[in-house]
């Protein structure tokens, strides 16, 4: 059996066990409204986590995601006032904003030969500044109902959740069935060998960073719709939550190992635990402590499994 599938199984079992425990402790946990609430809460983090999985698989990192969420949310919001444009305009421009910033990250990493940590750290600050410039430092409010509906439900299902499902499925198929996806793994596993195998390493990395930026754009649009404002200060620290979900999901920070399935499980695990702690009336101070322990604990368990 493949190592990655064993890992995912362990995580899935942990998720089920925690859910069962929670449903015994708090019967309200296992109700449709509460579970939908969990899904709503993990959507943004899940979307970002799927994107950053690509970058982590190549052996890189993206610290600019939180700022990109703010920038694309603000950009989308300024185009989403009532009766200003068709719905497609703010959505597409918002997503495009994230994609372009991601592409800049990719170009700085591949052609500028700047370490991903530094390149995206720079973008984190630049994009935050741009979000403040575009919005004049104030939240962009008074958004059209058509736009804000994107943050709500349709037929009883949260739209952000459906967006996450769509993006995760797409990302999964690309990684599994496209040559491009295979090359993402190859580059993370051994960049020199990938190059010697005839792979255009720069192009594949550029794709990974752009795709990651695109998911930040999507997350920014969805978040702006949900909170009905474009917040220039939104998304602070989101990149680390996303990376946490990916790492809990078994993707190696050094690249080449992991996948979307684990990332989704990781995001779910964080969401379920946050929700459970809320239901158990644990304050957010303690929630932060628990989340930190889970991140390290999950990776530690993973190491133990790999050793044996």
């Amino acid at each position: 059996m493949r190592a990655s599938s064993i890992k995912s199984w362990g995580l899935a079992i942990a998720l089920v066990a925690i859910s069962l425990a929670l449903s015994f402790a708090k019967p309200t946990f296992l109700t449709v409204p509460n579970l939908l609430n969990v899904m709503r809460q993990i959507s943004i983090n899940g979307i970002l986590a799927v994107g950053v999985t690509y970058v982590l698989l190549t052996g890189g990192v993206d610290l600019s995601l939180g700022s990109l969420v703010a920038l694309s949310g603000v950009v989308a919001a300024t185009l989403a006032h009532p009766n200003q444009h068709a719905l497609a305009v703010p959505v597409l421009v918002g997503v495009l904003t994230g994609t372009l910033c991601g592409a800049v990250n990719g170009l700085v990493v591949t052609h500028g030969k700047v370490a991903p940590f530094i390149a995206t750290l720079g973008m984190m600050t630049v994009a935050r500044g741009l979000a403040l410039v575009v919005s004049g430092g104030r939240p962009v409010s008074n958004l059209g109902a058509e736009f804000t509906r994107l943050g709500g439900d349709v037929a009883g299902l949260p739209i952000p959740l459906m967006v996450l499902a769509g993006i995760a499925l797409l990302a999964f198929v690309v990684l599994r069935n496209l040559r491009l996806g295979r090359y993402v793994y190859a580059i993370g596993g051994n960049e020199a060998a990938a190059r010697a195998s005839g792979i255009d390493v720069a192009a594949v990395k550029l794709f990974a960073y752009s795709a990651c930026g695109a998911t930040a754009g999507v997350a920014g649009v969805v978040l702006a719709a949900r909170v009905t404002t474009g917040q220039p200060n939104a998304g602070v620290g989101y990149e680390l939550d996303a990376i946490a979900a990916v790492v809990i999901g078994g993707t190696s920070l050094s690249g080449g190992v992991g996948g979307i399935g684990g990332t989704i499980l990781g995001a779910l695990l964080i969401g379920v635990i946050n929700n459970g702690l809320d239901l158990l009336n644990v304050t957010s101070y303690y929630q932060a402590i628990v989340k930190g322990i889970i991140i390290v604990g999950a990776v530690w368990l993973d190491r133990q499994q790999n050793k044996s």
């Binding site: 190859a186 051994n190 080449g256």
Partner: peptide
């Protein structure tokens, strides 16, 4: 190991 193989990848890949 440096240029020939992606070590964590499967034989097939």
């Amino acid at each position: 190991k440096q240029f020939g193989l992606v070590l964590p990848m499967s034989v097939q890949h």
